[in-house]
Simulated scan of single mutants.
Amino acid sequence: MATDTPQQALDELIEEFGFFDNWMDRYQYIIDLGKQLPAMPDEWKTAEYRIDGCQSNVWIYDEQHGDHLHFSAMSDAAIVSGLIAVVMRIYNDRTPHAILAMPKDCLDQLGLSQHLSPTRNNGLHAMLAHIYLTAAKLA
């Protein structure tokens, strides 16, 4: 379980992104983060868990562990897997209240929206919408 807050996780990501001089290096870092995602069981890679609005395949399986929400997620695209890893660092293993307390546009602080293609941006927003909706149902 995550011990820091979502804002602390975002602040750490902002600091890490600051280590890189350009967006090509940041993209590579995002891809590297995606390679570290835990494997997802094939039984969760179904239409039930697929996120609509993403050009590539994205699956998010969520379950409640005590008062925390745990998300398992993956994509079949490298950059999208990295975006999932960024999202998971901020939102995974948090209480619904902690998730809902984060501004929905908080990832703008990373500069992603200006540097992602429109389809990747739409996919990122679809993932976030799913996470916030899941948290709202349990709050």
Rank of each mutant, 00 (worst) to 15 (best):
L37Y: 06
E16A: 10
T119H: 14
W44I: 04
R120V: 09
L33S: 04
W23L: 05
S113F: 15
N121W: 15
S75C: 05
P38H: 10
D108Y: 14
T119P: 11
G34T: 03
F71S: 02
D11H: 01
L13P: 00
N121M: 14
E15D: 08
Y49Q: 07
Y91T: 03
A73W: 05
L110W: 11
R89F: 04
V80C: 04
A101P: 01
Q55G: 06
C54T: 10
F17I: 06
V87R: 02
D21L: 07
G82F: 09
I99E: 13
D108M: 13
L110F: 05
D67N: 10
D62F: 09
I60D: 00
S113W: 15
M88Q: 13
Y49G: 00
A78I: 09
Y29I: 04
K45H: 05
Q114G: 12
D105E: 08
P118W: 13
L110R: 09
A77R: 05
P6D: 05
N57Y: 14
D93L: 04
W59S: 00
D52S: 11
Q114M: 15
I84Y: 08
D93N: 08
L107H: 07
P118L: 12
D93T: 05
Y61F: 13
L37Q: 11
L69P: 01
D32K: 07
P96D: 14
L33I: 05
P38N: 10
L69T: 03
V80D: 10
F17L: 01
F20V: 10
I90P: 03
K104D: 12
Q114S: 15
A73K: 02
V86T: 12
D62S: 10
Y91N: 01
I90Q: 11
N22Y: 09
D11F: 00
D32W: 04
Q7K: 07
A39P: 00
C54Q: 03
C106G: 07
H65I: 12
I31N: 01
D42C: 03
R89Y: 01
H68R: 15
H68N: 06
D76T: 11
I30D: 02
Y27T: 10
A73L: 11
D62W: 07
L69A: 04
S113V: 14
D108L: 14
L10V: 04
Y49P: 01
P38M: 08
C106P: 02
Q114N: 15
A85E: 07
Q36I: 06
Q109G: 05
S113C: 12
E63D: 10
A98V: 08
D67T: 08
E15V: 08
E63M: 10
